[in-house]
Computed example of a mutant assay.
Amino acid sequence: MDKSTTIRILLLGKSGNGKSSLANTIFGETAFKVKNFNDLKTFVSEAKIKCINGRSITLIDTPGFFDQGRSEDEVKPELMRCITECAPGPHVFLIVFKVERYTEQEQAVTNEILQYFSDDALKYAVVVFTHGDQLPEGMKIEQYVSQSEGLRGLVKKCGDRCHVFDCKYWKNTEQEDNYRSNQFQVAELLVTIDKMLMKNTGEFYTNAVLSEVEREIQEEAQRIRLSSKTTSEEEIRELAKINILKKQMKGATLWIKGSVVAVTGLFAAVSAWVISSRVGQTSTVVALPNQEILDQGFREIAESVVKAEEAIVPLIVKAGEEVGQTTVSVTDVAETGAWVIFEALTALYERTYDPYNLFV
């Protein structure tokens, strides 16, 4: 593999497993913010580049895609950003676990990773354990892995590649036991990665989605390149990624808009329900007319309206005043309120859009 090629390393695992601390340990500096519980709801994928031992390495830290209770709709936007950051594909997956009992929950995380990226991803994967202070004295991580059938099977599928770190207690490089030193483990991890890259002939993991995103990034980069002769290639690619991500998210918004056009009556029912519950006006639609026909997509639209009440409710009230009524009917909402709500949502989205912090 060409030494000038940047190695893209994607960290995956549950929230709280120590991905950000591990990334800082690999870089030898505080490049990534270590999140607390309050940060987890707004945490988005983050990419940093550093030269280590003459090699350019990009670490991509990710939120807990695979946390229990996270819906697919919550995961999709952030997964989109993650894919944009690591396109055309990662050279290395670091699958991060704590040194603790390997339960069905941890197995479920592994299964979800493979659902998103396929079994082929394990050819590019290293299993990394954090909280190494929990490792029994004198035991190495390979011995620990051998005690669990689930872990043993996963590590075997990853080419028997595994390492252990402790970001709290193993910082001192003057350890009596070199094995329990983060400096030693980082050096060993980089050796493992180099061996894996050689085995994979320098290739990176990719799939149809990653390839398509990379194609779009390159096309956008060419457009930027032609319009700006002074922008560096690094800046051009970053701008291209931001623009593509914004385009993808707007595409999702337009899809919702198309759905509203197709079923204005149903959307009106949802709108009237929101108006009656948030504004306090009486409505001919006190409850949703038919629970069975209200699909999950429109329930989420209603919830979005409620969350954005400060921007939207005044506009809804104004819409009611414009039709000269204190009672809001389904027809009224269909004609005025539905599009007022949607346009308000769109305006709110465009004003607050931040590609590094989607849907806060």
Rank of each mutant, 00 (worst) to 15 (best):
D177Y: 09
D177R: 10
N178R: 14
N178H: 08
N178M: 09
Y179E: 08
R180D: 08
R180Q: 15
N182P: 10
N182Q: 13
Q183N: 10
Q183E: 15
Q183A: 12
Q183I: 13
V186C: 12
A187L: 07
L189A: 07
L189K: 10
L189W: 11
L189C: 07
L189M: 15
L190K: 05
L190T: 04
V191P: 00
V191L: 07
V191W: 01
T192R: 03
I193W: 04
I193G: 02
I193P: 02
D194N: 12
K195F: 03
K195R: 11
M196V: 02
L197W: 00
L197H: 01
K199D: 06
K199I: 04
K199M: 05
N200C: 03
N200E: 05
G202C: 02
G202E: 06
T206Q: 06
T206V: 00
N207T: 03
N207E: 00
N207M: 02
A208Y: 01
V209K: 14
L210V: 05
S211Y: 01
V213R: 11
E214D: 14
E214S: 04
R215S: 07
R215M: 07
E216R: 15
I217F: 03
A221F: 03
Q222R: 06
S227R: 13
T231I: 15
T231S: 12
S232Y: 08
E234H: 11
E234N: 12
E235P: 02
E235M: 10
I236S: 03
R237C: 02
R237M: 14
L239A: 11
L239W: 11
A240K: 08
A240Y: 04
K241Y: 06
I242S: 12
I242H: 08
N243H: 13
N243W: 05
I244H: 02
L245D: 10
K246H: 14
K246M: 14
K246S: 14
K247Q: 14
Q248H: 14
Q248S: 11
M249F: 08
K250H: 09
A252S: 12
A252I: 15
T253C: 09
T253V: 15
W255C: 03
W255L: 08
W255N: 07
I256E: 07
K257D: 05
S259M: 09
S259E: 14
S259T: 04
V261C: 05
V261D: 14
V261F: 07
A262P: 00
A262F: 03
T264D: 01
T264S: 01
T264F: 00
